[in-house]
Design a protein around this nucleic acid. Structure first.
Lengths: 155, 155
DNA sequence: CTAATTCCTCAACCTAACTTGAGGTCAAGC
DNA sequence: GCTTGACCTCAAGTTAGGTTGAGGAATTAG
């Protein structure tokens, strides 16, 4: 048999990756600055991505749609191996952690909804008396909300 | 009986309202620009809020924590009466609509989680083949995500 | 070899939801 | 009646998550 070709298509340009993921080129570059992908550069200084980044970015998109921030996603992805291409096993492990995080969110929302049900009848919809406004639930960060209340005080 | 006093405390200053809700003064002013509250002004040009705005803002806070945007909350609140103080019945009606919106969010998240479960084994975590990345589910807006994909194209 | 693509960097802009600060007024206590 | 604290407006800054554009270099097709 003829020797296998050197597979020049083993690495993707940023444009090709954009087409494969549906992302814009600028978004991919932005994700690089956030550490979600780490392409190598060719001789001319252009980015080259391993094919496994298609899956990596797909994961990013899915996680974002579920309400995770880029930072949280980066944390989840950091569980993937550095040098080698992630295996199915790697992805399974990360998906499991992901599912757990999702479960937490769903539970929190459900709890809130149930509290709301309790409040519909009682008219207690005023802060502090109502379990709905329980600081304990604050860990969630769904949406923005006043930073003052969220304890931002970052100075 | 002596005639009831004129109840000068019937209107709150912005500072008092801030203390009662836990919000910052600047946040309340900001909410006014967004139409969430509509205080009157006294002779000196200072804002005066009806006591019912305490509950109104409490509702805003709760809704925000559940992931609603200011605009969405304004829409929910627009169901409240204009002139008079909202009654318990008014609040009950609005809470019901609120609960429905919450149910939609919970259902969407749960559906996604179940899809993810299906994906953990199959390794299909690549866009387009996977139900997790179904544009049908896009209506949700949980978190930001690339505008390009979200069909922003607002030019 | 040249023209058309594609890619590069960097800076500026965008929305949401606020905060911070400057410069000035109002209200309340003594 | 004055001082102190609360309030006013308006402009600019902040974070997240990107987009847009300028000016220039690398690739690729013919």
């Amino acid at each position: 048999m003829a020797p296998a070709p050197p597979r020049p298509g083993d690495l993707l340009t940023i444009g090709a990756l954009a087409r494969r993921t549906g992302l814009s080129v600028s978004a991919i570059r932005f994700y690089e600055t956030r550490g979600l992908v780490a392409p190598i550069r060719n001789a001319g200084g252009q980015r080259r991505f391993p094919r496994s980044d298609i899956r990596r970015l797909s994961f990013v998109l899915i996680a974002q749609r579920l309400g995770f921030t880029i930072e949280e996603i980066a944390a989840l992805l950091s569980a993937l191996p550095e040098g080698r291409t992630p295996t199915l096993k790697d992805w399974t492990a990360i998906s499991r952690r992901f599912r757990a995080a999702l479960d937490v969110r769903i539970a929190a929302l459900t709890r809130m909804r149930d509290n709301l049900d309790g409040c519909i009848g009682c008219g207690c919809l005023s802060l502090k008396k109502c379990r709905l406004y329980n600081p304990q639930d604050r860990a969630q960060r769904l949406g923005a909300g006043p930073r003052y209340l969220l304890g931002d005080k970052s100075s």
